[in-house]
């Protein structure tokens, strides 16, 4: 096998009710260690696709395999992060990061040491014992990222993780995220509304279009790694942006808003 496939969907479909088909005929494969961006307008089914993969909701039809097994529910090799940090207000940063171990009953000195190190890694030295309400929005997302790392999951599903933050903080956190997930082990699926961001981060961009939610295009991004911000002004980069735009507008033309 040339590539080690971690996640694959074929004919995948999710229908919530008669009127809402959130995901329709999705066919895709995600190789191990890759970074996939999922971009598309609001309501096109990005979160739904993520929740299908995470096992939080059940598919209506088709096949969805994670490491060659049907997805039947949440699994420990998949971790999630949301637009909101979703921290427990009554717990300090380190206690929040230790939540996965507490739930799995694997809390020990080693787990504590890892939690500590994860907080240092996401840049929260000296904030280990702060409560969420004492932290800025960006710092809260850093705690959430540390908690995700603490799960030990090597498949990370990120649903607009920095979407609520200002642009500067978002760019910084994106770069830090890239640094953390780079390498052949961690597979990342990253949802965003922002076309530039999607291209900048990813090895491959899935473009989704709404009503019904389809993966309209899968675009390989052949930009050198590691990425840096200067690349976003190159012709190649803009070429990719145009490609994504074309897919989206080609679909949206003639559609009622």
């Amino acid at each position: 096998m040339a590539e080690d496939i971690v996640i694959s969907g074929s004919g995948l479909r999710k229908q919530f009710n008669e009127n809402v088909i959130a995901v329709e005929d999705a066919n895709f494969t995600i190789p191990r260690g890759s970074f996939i961006s999922l971009v598309g307008p609001s309501g096109c089914g990005k979160s739904t696709l993520l929740r299908l993969i995470s096992g939080l909701i059940e598919k209506s039809e088709g096949d969805l395999l994670v490491r060659s097994n049907e997805v039947v529910g949440p699994r420990s090799d998949i971790g999630m992060m949301f637009q909101k940090a979703v921290l427990l207000d009554w717990r300090t940063s380190i206690e929040n990061v230790l939540l996965p171990d507490e739930i799995r009953g694997t809390i020990d000195t080693d787990a504590k040491k890892r939690a500590w190190d994860h907080l240092q890694l996401v840049g929260l030295k000296d904030f280990e014992f702060s409560f969420p309400r004492q932290l800025s929005g960006g710092m809260q997302q850093r705690v959430a990222l540390a908690r995700l790392l603490q799960t030990g999951a090597d498949i990370m599903l990120l649903d607009e993780p920095f979407g609520a933050l200002d642009e500067f903080t978002r760019e910084r956190l994106n770069d830090e995220l890239l640094r953390i997930v780079e390498g052949p082990d961690i597979t990342t699926l990253f949802v965003t509304h922002n076309i530039q961001e999607a291209i900048y981060l990813a090895d491959q961009v899935f473009v989704m279009t709404p009503r019904p939610g389809r993966i309209a295009a899968q675009i390989k991004i052949d930009l050198p790694t590691p990425r840096n911000i200067d690349m976003t002004t190159t012709p190649e980069f803009n070429n990719y942006v145009q490609q994504v735009r074309d897919v989206l507008s080609g679909h949206l033309d003639g559609q009622p808003l």
Binding site: P74, G79, V86, I103
Partner: peptide, 15 residues
């Protein structure tokens, strides 16, 4: 309960 918090606990395999 915040819907995201519930999903977080579920995704962590909480009882």
């Amino acid at each position: 309960i915040d819907k995201d918090a519930t999903e977080l606990f579920r995704s962590l395999g909480s009882t």
